[in-house]
Design a protein around this nucleic acid. Structure first.
Length: 228
DNA sequence: GGCCAGGTGTAAA
DNA sequence: TTTACACATGGC
């Protein structure tokens, strides 16, 4: 299992190349870069990244991209700016809560941005496990493997896995991969990139870099055994 | 015009 | 504990 997970990673890497997530476009310092990542993590909830880019651009143009600016803006104004990212009323509340939370992380005298605990992120309204783990991994370089719909879809097919909960999926990856921040970042990004291309709900497996893996999984399933 | 996108919170079964 | 649904824009 461990070997196959790494094999799949290497196939994706050689096909798509290093993804270098998370993209930071506007931040002028390290703290704001962390915040911009977390902001993007909320804005991209069930939303295509290109729409998030429009929202971020609106915020930047209006000088409303910093944690302080967002924390002190009205929800109405924020909603107007982030409109292209969808669910703008909900997300306006969420990003404002996030900004206020981030301000508490930099209040320490040493000027360092404190690494939040997972539970403190989950306590924020509108931050669930996937968003919390994205923020921890990409903004704070903490070792949490991010599970999203693409990950479940792809690995359900590849391994005939029917894991129910987010935690079980996360355990599956974290128990079978070396604890390596860069690997976690890149693997998740590659899964997303791959699924955007060929592993959608209607998979195009015949033009897929993992075609052999898919066939292997299908064969194993038809023989009534779980693929290793 | 329908489907889908780097989910989450709430309420009901 | 699982399932259904609201939330919403924009690209293909």
């Amino acid at each position: 299992m461990k070997t196959r997970l790494m094999q799949i990673y290497n196939m994706l890497l050689s096909c798509y190349g290093k993804q270098g997530w998370w993209p930071v476009e506007y931040a002028k310092n390290e703290h704001e870069a962390c915040f911009e990542i977390a902001l993007g993590a909320i804005l991209t909830q069930n939303t295509a990244w290109r729409n998030v880019e429009k929202a971020l651009e609106n915020l930047a143009r209006a000088q409303k991209l910093s944690m302080h600016a967002i924390a002190t803006s009205s929800e109405r104004e924020l909603a107007r700016l982030i409109r292209p990212a969808g669910y703008y009323n909900q997300k306006a509340k969420r990003v404002k809560g996030l900004a206020r939370f981030f301000l508490t992380l930099c209040k320490e005298k040493d000027k360092k941005l404190h690494v939040p605990s997972r539970s403190s992120l989950l306590a924020l309204h509108g931050i669930g496990k996937e968003t919390a783990d994205s923020i921890l991994l990409y903004a704070f370089a903490q070792p949490y493997f991010v599970i999203d719909a693409y990950t479940r879809r792809l690995f359900s097919r590849l391994f005939s896995l029917q894991l129910k909960s987010y935690d079980k999926w996360q355990d599956f990856f974290m128990e079978n991969l070396p604890c390596d921040i860069e690997l976690y970042k890149e693997y998740h990004a590659l899964i997303v990139e791959h699924c955007k291309n060929t592993c959608r709900k209607e998979p195009k497996c015949d033009e897929c870099v993992l075609q052999q893996e898919c066939n292997f999984a299908r064969e194993a399933q038809s023989k009534g055994r779980i693929s290793p």
